[in-house]
Amino acid sequence: MSGVQLRKLGALWRLGVAEATAYRTSLLVWVLATTMPLISLVLWRALARGGPIGDYDQAGFDSYFIAAFVVRQLSVSWVVWDLDGQIRTGALSALLMRPVHPVAHHVMINLAALPLRTALAAPVAIAVLLVTGGMSITTNPVALALAIPALVLAWCLNFLTQLAIGCLAFWLTKAAALYDVWIGAYVVLAGYLVPTSLFPAGLAEVARVLPFHAALGFPVELLIGRLSSAQALAGIGLQLVWLVVIGGIAALAWRRGLRAYGAFGA
């Protein structure tokens, strides 16, 4: 990448940080809105009081849901709402006029908010860690090394899904509402409310190959040491497969959508 490109991305990063700071109140509300795993933690901890549920005891649930909270904070984006708004209001035209790819723009804006988001979420996570008495992290060096790419891939999966759905705004008026449908499935199937390994037999196997699980449940289980090295590698492989599929759909939707956008002259 040339120096000019890097400078542009740097400028976008600074813009993203400034925007995140300006909207810090809403960022905080978002962090709070994604504390759902922590409430699930309290709930499952109470249910496991009389003995373990499946292969999760109280400490197991603590680890799982704290990790789920952290992974969720680090893997979110909101490009679907931005894109939906920009397409409907025609503000996308201004982005298209810039010598930076609009998708690169959104990537930088979303990434730039991560540090502040982490800063806002960290006190919550630390408080929970102190109250529950800590969590266990994998001691397997292979799993630990794979946790980083698994997290990056989880972020990419979320971003590309949002991009693909956001592109529907080129044709539909309620594209952002469709994302609610996706999130509805995600909450249940990704292991956000309950680890998918506890699902009834049959449902568990299906849930664990879907992209929802690849975007949350897998990195979480990897992080807290519930997967063998072989399972970890298989999980990364599955993440890559979904990345290609969803990325392909997003690219197609973007290209077709731009043509439609140009056609009605926004």
Partner: peptide
Amino acid sequence: LGGVVPLVVAFEHR
């Protein structure tokens, strides 16, 4: 109704 899944999970084990 999807929100009921965790309840089903709980009754699997309790």
